[in-house]
Simulated scan of single mutants.
Amino acid sequence: MRFDRYTVILLTLRPDAPAMTDEEADERQDRHLAHGADMQERGLVLARGPLVDQDNERYRGFSIWSVDAATARNHAEADPAVRAGRLAVEVMTWMMPAGNLQFSRVRRPRSIADATTD
């Protein structure tokens, strides 16, 4: 059986994340979303999104990448929320039976305003 390999990144809230005002958090979130949208537009990220209703509140986001683990890590570590020390990057390889998943191009939120409008 053939398998497709994807790099998966789990973003987690760092225990030593710096405190921010609401305004700072919103600005950082907008830059985080824009970074992710850029990665998708370049074809590096196939799918991404926040994690909600999870057992562990440290888990913040999940993304599936089309590139090897080292390349994905380098781009994920350039995320403004990671560089600011708010989020940490966990990288792994995920294997699926070949052809099991298909990814479509969808609208990519670049800001909180984009993510909250229909």
Score class of each variant (00 low, 15 high):
1 M>I: 12
2 R>W: 10
4 D>H: 06
6 Y>L: 08
6 Y>A: 07
9 I>G: 00
10 L>K: 08
12 T>M: 08
12 T>I: 09
14 R>E: 06
17 A>E: 05
26 D>N: 12
26 D>M: 10
28 R>N: 14
30 D>V: 03
33 L>C: 02
34 A>P: 00
34 A>K: 04
36 G>H: 12
37 A>T: 02
42 R>T: 06
42 R>G: 05
43 G>F: 04
44 L>R: 13
44 L>V: 10
46 L>D: 01
46 L>I: 04
47 A>T: 11
48 R>A: 13
52 V>D: 06
52 V>K: 05
53 D>H: 11
54 Q>S: 11
54 Q>D: 10
55 D>L: 15
60 R>T: 10
61 G>Q: 06
63 S>Y: 08
64 I>R: 00
68 D>T: 07
69 A>R: 08
70 A>H: 08
72 A>G: 03
76 A>W: 00
76 A>I: 02
77 E>I: 03
78 A>W: 04
81 A>E: 02
82 V>H: 02
83 R>L: 13
85 G>V: 10
85 G>P: 02
86 R>V: 15
86 R>E: 11
86 R>M: 15
90 E>P: 00
93 T>P: 00
94 W>L: 14
94 W>M: 11
95 M>N: 12
95 M>Q: 13
98 A>F: 09
98 A>V: 05
98 A>I: 03
101 L>C: 05
105 R>Q: 15
105 R>N: 11
105 R>A: 13
108 R>L: 13
110 R>T: 07
111 S>R: 03
114 D>T: 02
115 A>M: 10
117 T>M: 14
118 D>F: 12
